[in-house]
Design a protein around this nucleic acid. Structure first.
Length: 841
DNA sequence: GCGGATCAC
DNA sequence: TATGGTGATCCGC
């Protein structure tokens, strides 16, 4: 969103009593005091407020610590630091690069502006986009009442009872954004979009080329209607212009007139003011950077009827600050010479700089620093009080330095889903919710073909306290079931830790990270060959040799060369399935010989030789699921193959949810991860979307689609599911999430060698995941105790943790572990995404 | 690698 | 009645 005003949201005013806000209270609006009073009344005593106070105290503590540290600094240390910092500053100065022209474009009150454009009724009214619980943005009219982005709608309503809150239409914003993007690409095909309404351009090259452009190429006709396209230079457009400014749906009365750029009405440059004929209905833009940006803004407004603000400077940091200076509907340039830069920087409040937030501002303020000049004056001190990264950053700012090139879109590092809801305290509902989030995440991951090794859950309780818990495994995961298997364990730990009190949650999130990087991927390519060469031994260890030959393993590879990404994914899944079927009859390994135990033993003893195996660190491709396995050891790889053969989480889902099926409310239990059956059913019977676990055994077998048969069901939820031949075909066509056949043996009790607890699950995958997670936990605990990881885990567990283990057992017995998967509470779609960056990618 | 914090949008 | 979702990064373990 735009403007630094919004950065200083009401909380700052309220809790931190920050400096002046540039709210120009008109007759119609409210003054600052009134605004604060109303906000305070609405917020005081709330859990949210209490948490804000708590956070504020933490920040104050941090500042106090810093001040103590400062007090201990000797003048000698300071002098020494001064020399060091100045040396670095000198280097920075020498590397100063003023040769690039960077532009930052920022749409004015974007979402609100779009809504006003498309609904004239809203034009003269205060509006905001969002919901009663959170606003994304407000128009300038509403801002006069103190209504800001990131403010809950219900408080905004108290500030401004006439406020109209419009629910967001992201599809529309994306479409408008795309139009803007098309224009931007003309000036820099590699422009960098920060969100739907913000982007950086490097127009250096464009400027060079433009110097030789004839006037014709810089000429645009003015239109006032919006029916015709006016996006190409020299194209004739409809009727003559009225004042362009009136086209804007925004109200700009509070925009400082002296700051309006001279070309605000696009009155063009002097050259063609001499040509009245052209002035009638067209404009010619000059060749300077300023003219280019005017042209961009002109074209944006012509095309979308929306206004943008812009900043022009030698680097991104400055350009960003500039675009805020003459907002809305204005632009500002810092000329590319050192003096101009330093003049601009001189009194610039540090808070205006992107990257300096509320907390940093407050910390620096405690050191008497509010402007960039003051940063420079205190540079030696800062180098002693802050990390190297931080003081380097501060020094850059104080010298007016920033990026002079736009970074290529970096590879994604994580993907997540989170949701806020009204309180959920029942464990079953929490698991169920977690499962849904995992499904959503898996869908998103699939769209980008991502797999990762670290699963993180995020929990926020009703007091707004946030916790994250992560677990990293040695293999990549991507399906809902795989992710949930890990997330569930993390959640369980938290639930258990709070027992007998419930976790009272208001938000839950799931994130996947540790995606293999390019290096890893190359490695994987090689490893396929390695696998084929060395694979026979590997396979024989799993007893799979005779089932899979090299041709079969090669198939997906060949396909991948010829077909699209999605086709490739599809075929991978087909192959997964076929391979699984081939291995279906394979005899199960007994737990004792299961490779996961070998890995476990090795990890536990951790004695000396990390690698007696020559395959250490190699990456294999699993012959069953055909996913690359970045295994540390052959055993780990074997373990994976093992679990793959065991067929993962469908069975787990089934056993997990089926136990509760009797009590489950069918209607609400709409989309659990029982994708095999559910999806099948979905295709042919769209309105019969109840998940299978909501149905009894009899109902199951009576399902019209007959996608599966349950051969037997114990009371303790053990089921054996088999697919008939024709169903296999249809499943393949439909790309099931988990194309594994599954068989569940429940009578066998598995005892985790780490926590010593009996695991009620019979699914080996699930069990292995548990052991994995458990092991991670215990290693961490071990490390925290500052011990060498050498004692057997049983001992470890016996000491500090026994109480909790016991408790867990109790709880496990109580709930039978087969936690009910009743439907989660209806989640209020409180606030949809604000920014969907995928659009620009 | 983990978890809390900060920041941007 | 009621205070968001996504992604990145940094720091101190």
């Amino acid at each position: 969103m735009d403007s630094t005003e919004e950065k200083n949201n009401y909380k700052d005013d309220l809790l931190l009593r920050m400096g002046l806000n540039d709210n120009k209270a008109g007759m119609e609006g409210l003054d600052k005091e009134k605004i604060n009073k109303i906000i305070m009344e609405a917020t005081k005593g709330s859990r949210f407020y209490e948490n804000e106070l708590k956070k504020e105290k933490q920040v104050n503590q941090r500042i106090e610590n810093m001040m103590q540290q400062k007090a201990q600094i000797t003048s000698q240390q300071l002098r020494k630091a001064q020399l060091q910092v100045d040396r670095f500053a000198m280097e920075l100065e020498q590397s100063r690069d003023l040769n690039n022209t960077i532009v930052h474009i920022d749409m004015d009150a974007f979402y609100a502006a779009v809504e006003m454009r498309d609904n004239p009724e809203l034009k003269d009214k205060p509006i905001a986009v969002g919901s009663s619980s959170m606003l994304s943005t407000s128009n300038y009219h509403a801002r006069r009442f103190g209504v800001r982005a990131a403010m809950p709608g219900f408080i905004a309503k108290r500030l401004c009872p006439q406020l109209i809150i419009v629910p967001p239409n992201f599809d529309k914003y994306r479409a408008v954004s795309r139009e803007v993007k098309e224009i931007l690409a003309d000036y820099d095909p590699n422009f960098m979009a920060m969100s739907l309404d913000e982007a950086y351009l490097n127009i250096t090259k464009h400027l060079q080329e433009r110097q030789n452009w004839p006037e014709d190429k810089r000429k645009y006709f003015i239109k006032t209607g919006n029916s015709l396209e006016n996006d190409k230079p020299g194209k004739e457009i409809n009727k003559a212009s009225e004042c362009e400014r009136s086209m804007s749906p925004l109200l700009f009365e509070d925009s400082p007139p002296d700051l309006q750029p001279p070309g605000n009405t696009f009155q063009v440059n002097t050259e063609e003011q001499n040509n009245p004929q052209i002035l009638q209905n067209s404009v010619v833009f000059g060749t300077s950077a300023e003219e280019v940006v005017k042209e961009i803004r002109f074209r944006i407004e012509q095309k979308t009827t929306l206004t943008a603000s812009a900043g022009i400077a030698p680097n991104t940091m400055l350009a960003k600050v500039c675009s805020d200076k003459n907002k809305p509907n204005g632009q500002y340039q810092i000329l590319p010479n050192r003096q101009a830069v330093m003049d601009f920087i001189k009194d610039l409040p540090i808070r205006k700089v992107s990257g300096i937030g509320k907390v940093t501002e407050k910390m620096l303020k405690a050191l008497g620093i509010t402007t960039c000049t003051e940063i420079y004056q205190q540079r030696a001190l800062l180098s002693l009080l802050f990390s190297e990264t931080s003081w380097h950053y501060f020094l850059h700012i104080s010298l007016g330095l920033g990026s002079t090139h736009l970074a290529r879109d970096a590879e994604r590092k994580s993907m997540s889903v989170e949701r806020t809801f009204s309180e959920i305290s029942k464990a079953e509902e929490q698991y169920s919710l977690c499962q849904e989030l995992c499904s959503e995440l898996a869908q998103d991951l699939q769209k980008e073909g991502l797999k990762g090794r670290t699963v993180t859950i995020k929990l926020k309780n009703v007091n707004f306290e946030v916790k994250t818990r992560a677990s990293t495994v040695s293999y990549v995961v991507s399906t809902a079931e795989e992710i949930f298997a890990i997330a569930k364990e993390l959640l369980k730990t938290e639930i258990d830790a709070e027992f007998p009190q419930p976790l009272r949650l208001r938000l839950m999130g799931v994130r996947l990270s540790s995606f293999p990087n390019e290096e890893d991927k190359k490695h994987q390519q090689r490893s396929i060959i390695d696998f084929l060469q060395a694979g026979n031994q590997t396979l024989s260890a799993t007893g799979c040799t005779e089932k899979i030959d090299k041709d079969q393993v090669l198939k997906p590879l060949e396909i991948s060369h010829k077909t699209s990404f999605f086709d490739k994914k599809r075929s991978e899944r087909k192959w997964n399935h076929q391979d699984t079927l081939k291995c279906e009859t394979m005899s199960r390994q007994s737990l004792q010989t299961s490779p996961s135990f070998q890995v476990l033993k090795k990890k536990m003893s951790e004695t000396s030789e990390t690698s007696e195996n020559s395959d250490n660190g190699q990456i294999f491709t699993c012959p069953v699921c055909f996913r690359e396995q970045e295994s540390i050891t052959l055993e780990a790889f074997n373990k994976h193959v093992d679990t793959c053969l065991d067929g993962p989480s469908i069975s787990e889902m089934f056993s997990y949810s089926h136990a509760s099926s009797i009590e489950v409310n069918k209607k609400e239990n709409v989309h659990h991860s029982f994708s095999l059956c559910e999806k099948q059913d979905y295709e042919t019977h769209p309105n019969k979307a109840e998940s299978v676990d909501a149905l009894s055994k009899e109902e199951c077998s009576n399902l019209p689609s007959k996608s599966f048969n349950i051969e037997h069901c114990h009371q303790n939820s053990s089921c054996t599911v088999s697919l008939e031949n024709e169903d296999v075909g249809s499943l393949r066509r439909q790309e099931p999430l988990q194309p594994h056949l599954c068989e569940v043996i429940t009578d066998q009790a598995l005892v985790c060698p780490v926590c010593n607890l009996e695991q009620k699950t019979s699914d080996l995958t699930l069990f292995n995941v548990h052991v994995d997670v458990c092991l991670n936990k215990s290693i961490i605990q071990e490390l925290r105790k500052d011990n060498q990881v050498s004692q057997p885990k049983e001992n470890t567990k016996g000491t500090g943790n026994s109480g909790r283990v016991q408790k867990t057992v109790t709880k496990t017995k109580r709930s039978g572990l087969m936690t009910k998967y009743s439907a989660s509470k209806k989640i209020k779609p409180n606030n949809p995404r604000h920014t969907l960056d995928i659009f620009f990618k």
